[in-house]
């Protein structure tokens, strides 16, 4: 998902008092929330910092592909909605950075990690938005996949993260609905418009399935994250939930899922898909996607050209407080 890049495993803690660790796990097991100043294993802290900051970076980088279409939205209604959605994503990034900071890492460090390519963001935002239909597909599919992953995170064992996720989830459903509305409109429009919607679905479908991260057989982080109740469902089970929810929505508007192997398994009621190209997933995560360079360059440019604003604001604040003291 937005935190799919959790590919490095931490060495287990050794120097920590066992009694603390046992008491900690007991609190987790009884569904007690862990708060910022509570004792926690170092690996729990590190895992959360990595996961929450990757999530935050994804929200921020995720503003770029959609921001690409704000000036060219086909109507004022669509433009207002897209602008509000992109602004929400910025807000999501900020809630999440704040949650990560409660674990003892500074905002400046987090931003530096993204710009220095030491931290990752979701692979999905490295694909381009070529036509207006991509804005529909993103809202419907990317936000739809995000919701699947984020709803269980509202019950994450770490209080500040869970609370941020509750705020985010409240806002996400508008995102998905506005995206699907765009797809419905295009699918019921001229043949060219319908073709545009189908083309967008063709390009976004597989990358969206990859958003849930590697298959359970390869996912290194699942076990500890599940024991700590940071994660509550496996990658594959969330992916299946998304597929089952989305396939009928596509069929309802006469669009075809771009997967010749797709079939409904009568016995289980699940839609089964063909194999996912995990090579592509790894390539995009490692920096080889169509837009990796462009996204990072845009973030760096924003950070650098905004530096004078941050400096001026700090200088102004210092001057004001000096004047206040002199008065």
């Amino acid at each position: 998902m937005y935190t799919q890049a959790l590919n490095t495993k931490d060495a287990p803690d050794t120097a920590e008092p066992e009694a603390h660790a046992a008491r900690f796990q007991e609190r987790i097991d009884t569904e007690e929330r862990i708060e910022a100043n509570d004792w926690m294993p170092e690996a729990y802290r590190r895992t959360l910092i990595r996961q929450i900051s990757q999530h935050a970076h994804s929200e921020i980088v995720g503003m770029l592909p959609e921001g690409n279409w704000i000036t060219r939205a086909p109507s004022l209604r669509r433009k207002a909605a897209l602008l509000a959605k992109v602004q929400d994503e910025g807000g999501h990034g900020l809630y999440l950075y704040a949650a990560a900071e409660t674990l003892g890492v500074s905002r400046e460090e987090l931003v530096d990690q993204l710009l220095a390519q030491k931290a990752r963001y979701s692979s999905i935002f490295n694909y381009p938005t070529l036509t207006w239909a991509d804005i529909g597909a993103i809202g419907w599919l990317v936000d739809g996949a995000a919701i699947m992953n984020q709803i269980p995170l509202c019950r994450c064992s770490y209080g500040p993260y869970a609370r941020a996720m509750i705020r985010i989830c409240k806002e996400e459903s508008f995102h998905q609905r506005q995206g699907y509305e765009i797809m419905v409109t295009l699918a019921r429009g001229t043949p060219e418009q319908k073709e545009m919607a189908q083309d967008a679905l063709n390009r976004w479908w597989a990358p969206c399935l990859m958003m849930f991260g590697p298959p359970d057989t390869e996912s290194q982080h699942s076990d500890t994250s599940m024991a700590w109740k940071i994660k509550r469902f496996t990658n594959d089970s969330l992916r299946q939930k998304f597929i089952d929810a989305t396939v009928p929505q596509a069929h309802h508007i006469g669009l075809a899922i771009p997967d010749p192997a797709l079939r409904l398994d009568e016995a289980s009621g699940h839609w089964l898909t063909g194999p996912i190209d995990w090579e592509e997933f790894r390539r995009v995560l490692a920096g080889g996607g169509p837009c990796n360079r462009e996204r990072l360059a845009a973030r760096r440019r924003a950070h650098e050209t905004g530096a004078w604003v941050r400096e001026a604001a700090m200088a102004h604040a210092a001057k004001q407080s000096a004047q206040k003291q002199a008065a």
Partner: peptide
């Protein structure tokens, strides 16, 4: 409800309203 970064109180209030 959460926190924000800002250089001074005026900007903090504005950021809190936006976020």
């Amino acid at each position: 409800v959460g926190s924000v970064h800002a250089a001074d109180a005026t900007l903090a209030l504005q950021a809190a309203r936006d976020v």
